[in-house]
Design a protein around this nucleic acid. Structure first.
Length: 286
DNA sequence: CTCAGTGTTCAGTG
DNA sequence: TCACTGAACACTGA
């Protein structure tokens, strides 16, 4: 479930494994024109192969590699994207060059294989794979990711910079949509996704149906503090769901069971708001 | 067979 | 032009 914490965790993993290393093999799925929707897989391979990874970056749900030459690869994991890692050196040769040719299937985890969109192999044999069953993710090239769309159009990244309560109040005062919908607006809250929005509203005891502009000063302040706390906590535990506090709505919000309850036995309701399934607790959220 | 789903974008409306 | 809504996208799994 790639929202900010999952993406940040992926970025840190990739940085740890690839920083300072040269990419000796870059293997996009040669037939994929959906995930590779701008640069062709072949252009993508040419841009990356032989380059050295100097670092990584992230804003909102996008992350990228900083190479010793431009352009740089930019990743968005969509709904079902994942970063997978292989460390065995022998793997590289065993896999060969082409992604989906029959002999190369040997040694690949059969669970991962059909959804692998890109593999990157470093000089020391470290290997990263990007998988994405549903193909809502995108892999692109950018000369300067932060300065060009879509990343340049993102709003505040809560892990990096976040407006004061006063400033946030001014932003929300202009919005007539339900607060749930506004929380999902990447032009304001970069990196917030469906479950984080629901979690924040639950913990700040606000109904997702509330019109953003009608929140009181105190409510905006509460929302802001909670949002920062939820994001920081989930990043701190590396988006490991089992380590999220037991009190979080997160553990109970999935599926739409009629009898769904929070840890404190509060009834969970599912509505559609801002076009998305919204789990909330009417007995707590006003 | 049908439908929901962690996200983004675009067409249409007001 | 802007804010907002809802459909479309692609595909798996319940």
């Amino acid at each position: 479930m790639p929202e900010l914490p999952e993406v940040e965790t992926s970025r840190r993993l990739v940085e740890k494994l690839l920083k300072g290393k040269r990419l000796v093999e870059v293997l996009p799925d040669p037939d994929d024109r959906i995930v590779f929707d701008r640069a062709s897989p072949e252009e993508f391979r040419e841009a990356l192969e032989g380059a050295r990874v100097k670092g990584t970056g992230r804003k909102g749900k996008y992350f990228w590699l900083e190479l010793d030459r431009r352009p740089w690869p930019v990743f968005h994991l969509g709904m079902t994207g994942h970063v997978e890692v292989r460390k065995k050196k022998s793997f590289v040769k065993a896999w060969g060059r082409r992604l989906y040719s029959e002999p190369d299937r040997k040694g690949l985890d059969p669970r991962i294989l059909p959804f692998c969109r890109l593999r990157m192999v470093a000089a020391d044999g470290t290997e990263i794979a990007i998988t994405d069953p549903r193909r809502f993710g995108r892999i692109r090239l950018a000369e300067d990711p932060e300065r060009e769309p879509p990343i340049s159009k993102l709003g505040y990244d809560p892990l990096v910079e976040f407006p004061s309560a006063k400033k946030l109040g001014e932003i929300l005062a202009k919005r007539r949509a339900p607060i749930k919908a506004v929380l999902l607006d990447q032009g304001v809250f970069a990196g917030v996704g469906n479950w984080i929005a629901d979690e924040v509203l639950y913990q700040s005891r606000l109904s997702p149906h509330r019109i953003a502009a009608k929140l009181s000063t105190a409510e905006v302040a509460r929302l802001r503090t909670t949002l920062l706390a939820v994001i920081r906590k989930s990043v701190a535990v590396h988006a490991d769901y089992y380590r999220y506090p037991k009190s979080w709505l997160f553990h109970h919000r999935w599926g739409k069971a009629k009898e769904a309850m929070t840890a404190r036995k509060q009834k969970i309701v599912h509505d559609t708001i801002g076009g998305r399934t919204t789990a909330w607790v009417p007995s707590v959220q006003v």
